[in-house]
């Protein structure tokens, strides 16, 4: 039959030379280039594994070794199995123990008397592939956890049934001032002073945000109330439905908006004054001058016109002072905001 042409690096930890030889022969039957490293003691294997210099595709481990008890071995296997696929080699007497080791992360166990070349080959391949798959899953899980933990935006997860906060990231702890423990002892409702601030939401929406966001008022540890833009999403965490919250503090944004709105209002008032109030005495003056040019006014009427001109000038003066005061007010308000 055709042998597997891949080079597979195997670390065999086995104190019985006969068993070791058998394993080696079985491996060679199906694998063209088994790169086998054989050690007889666990303590010898340890530096090879922890060094990082040597790289193995799989570890075949005898359960009964002279330099380590089974209990200690299991403790070591737990760590080992994170890095490498581990297949246990055992006799019938330790079968129960071998079965238990599966829950420690061991990939497979083989009963020595029943091992054949095919069984060994299949177990080796299967364990390597499965371990690779689990590892990539774990890495992806870590990546997602990092996205959560290292996100610069405050985020937390809560249980929609009880409202209890289950996890919180660094940014939330820094922004809100509560410690992680304090967060985990809180409910979502305790954090949130005001559920939805429609008024603020409208303003933020007008800036171009999507409409699936709500604005809530939250209390920080130091008592300050902040306005936060909230995006909620459901996630399934360990098979339970959870809500993941992304909170963006928009307090300053809103304050700035309010200042701009106030200034706009003042500028509109000024514009209104320019177009209505200033124009009134000016148009009156123009009319009077027009009338005086065309003549045909008696002395009394001329006197009256001069009075009108004077009062128009006074009115203009007052309006200009008023506008100037309003303009100053509008700009000083905005500067205060800065």
């Amino acid at each position: 039959m055709k042998r597997d042409e891949r080079s597979i690096r195997v670390l065999l930890i086995e104190d019985n030379p006969g068993d070791a030889l058998l394993v080696e022969e079985y491996l060679e039957e199906y694998i063209l280039r088994p790169d086998l490293k054989h050690v007889e003691r666990f303590q010898k294997a340890k530096p090879l594994i922890t060094d990082g210099n040597e790289n193995y595709d799989i570890i075949l481990l005898d359960l009964t070794l002279p330099d380590i008890s089974k209990e200690q071995l299991i403790e070591n296997i737990k760590h080992l199995a994170v890095e490498y696929p581990v297949v246990i080699l055992t006799g019938y007497s330790d079968l129960e123990f071998a079965v238990k080791s599966l829950s420690m992360g061991v990939s497979d166990y083989l009963v020595k008397d029943t091992i054949s070349s095919l069984v060994l080959y299949k177990s080796v391949l299967y364990s390597i592939e499965r371990h690779r798959f689990i590892r990539s899953l774990r890495e992806s899980e870590k990546r997602y956890m990092d996205l959560f933990q290292l996100s610069p935006a405050p985020m937390w997860v809560y249980d929609p049934e009880t409202n209890a906060i289950l996890d919180v990231n660094e940014a939330a702890i820094n922004h809100y001032g509560y410690s992680k423990e304090e967060f985990l002892g809180m409910t979502q409702s305790a954090l949130c002073v005001k559920d939805s601030n429609e008024d603020a939401a409208e303003k933020i929406e007008a800036l171009g945000s999507a409409s699936d966001r709500t604005i809530q008022s939250h209390r920080k540890k130091n008592g300050t109330i902040i306005n936060v833009e909230i995006i909620n999403n459901y996630i399934y965490f360990k098979a339970c439905k959870r809500v993941i919250v992304l909170a963006t503090d928009v307090t300053e944004k809103l304050a700035h908006l309010e200042a701009i709105e106030l200034q706009n209002k003042q500028l509109r008032e000024i514009a209104w004054m320019q177009s209505h109030v200033v124009r009134a005495p000016v148009s009156r003056l123009m009319g009077i001058i027009d009338l005086m040019k065309t003549g045909e006014l008696d002395m009394a009427e001329k006197e009256q016109m001069l009075d009108f001109i004077f009062s128009s000038a006074e009115e203009l003066d007052e309006i200009i002072r008023d506008i100037s005061a309003k303009s100053e007010e509008a700009f000083s308000d905005l500067n205060k905001e800065k």
């Binding site: 009134a280 148009s283 009156r284 009319g287 009077i288 009338l291 065309t294 009256q304 009108f308 009062s311």
Partner: peptide, 14 residues
């Protein structure tokens, strides 16, 4: 505005 009223009366009449 009394002045405007007076002016307008004059203009309309003239």
């Amino acid at each position: 505005d009394a002045a405007v009223l007076f002016l307008h009366e004059v203009m309309v009449r003239e």
